[in-house]
């Protein structure tokens, strides 16, 4: 206390204004540092929740894009391997979780094998994108048989190459097979994705899909987006055809597919 009074009275010590300015300075500094450390403390709860959350649908679209790219760049297997895979489907076509797929893709092993034997140029030394463009001349040839063959072969080959399985469903060791939708439109008028949920029925010339009804109930011609729900994410790719026209390929990804599976 004595020392404090001495400081106030002395010419070289601190007086009231010195102490005031120092206090003022440090107070402002403290407030600013405090504000910097708790940015967002004045925002509303709703804004904070939106800011911390992430846009999952955007992530799903990016995933769909990447998956479609990888599909299109997949190298086609040789004839023996393709037929071996199809032979497996043929052998198990009556198994519980295959027969729905077989029916959906109109699988006919004999006719598909016949086509693959006659036309190796459609898949030999090509990637999946080249396979699609290889089917185009048959689809547009004007022959009903060629058109049906191309549709059937597209479905069968797409299925054996990209079919997926959820294992241990519904019981250990069992499989549920599904095929995410992939559609092709030759000579499209635009590059917009299909607005319908079931794109194979509504939109595309070549199309393959199998979504087990246990997981994706079949709805009557719904739209892809019924606010606030978007059922799937869509990716579009353009591929060239030999006659210098284009084909549009659409792929659907269901981000919540596995979560929709009923638990065993």
């Amino acid at each position: 206390m004595v020392m404090f009074r001495a400081m106030l009275k002395s010419r070289k010590g601190l007086d009231f204004w010195d102490i005031f300015f120092y206090l003022f300075y440090f107070l402002v500094a403290f407030i600013i540092i405090f504000l910097l450390n708790i940015a967002g403390c004045v925002i509303k709860d709703k804004e904070a929740r939106a800011g911390i959350g992430a846009d999952v649908s955007l992530a799903a679209v990016i995933r769909a894009d990447a998956q479609l790219d990888s599909y299109l760049r997949t190298q086609m297997p040789g004839k023996e391997e393709l037929l071996e895979k199809m032979g497996w489907v043929e052998k198990n076509k009556n198994a519980k979780y295959i027969k729905g797929l077989v029916k959906e893709i109109d699988f006919n092993f004999g006719k598909v094998e016949d086509f693959l034997n006659k036309h190796p140029e459609v898949y030999s030394d090509r990637d999946y994108s080249g396979f699609i463009s290889g089917l185009h001349p048959f689809y547009v040839s004007g022959s009903k048989k060629d058109k049906e063959d191309s549709e059937r072969v597209f479905k069968a080959v797409t299925a054996v190459m990209f079919i997926r399985a959820v294992i241990d469903y519904p019981k250990k060791g069992d499989y549920m097979f599904y095929l995410l939708p992939l559609g092709v439109d030759f000579g499209p008028s635009d590059l917009k994705p299909s607005s319908k949920e079931d794109m194979c029925k509504s939109s595309y010339e070549l199309c393959a899909q199998y979504l087990p009804p246990e997981v994706v109930p079949s709805l009557k011609d719904p739209l892809i987006y019924v606010s606030p729900v978007r059922f799937s994410s869509q990716a579009i790719q353009i591929i060239p055809l030999a006659d210098a026209t284009l084909a549009k390929v659409e792929f659907r990804y269901y981000p919540e597919f596995k979560s929709r599976l009923p638990q065993p």
């Binding site: 967002g40 925002i43 509303k44 804004e47 904070a48 939106a50 800011g51 911390i52 959350g53 992430a54 846009d55 955007l58 992530a59 679209v61 990016i62 894009d65």
Partner: peptide, 18 residues
């Protein structure tokens, strides 16, 4: 961006990925 701007976390990063 302030949190009240309505942009969610990672929006800019997703735009780059797109």
């Amino acid at each position: 961006y302030s949190l009240s701007s309505g942009l969610s976390t990672g929006t800019e990063q997703f735009r780059v990925l797109k």
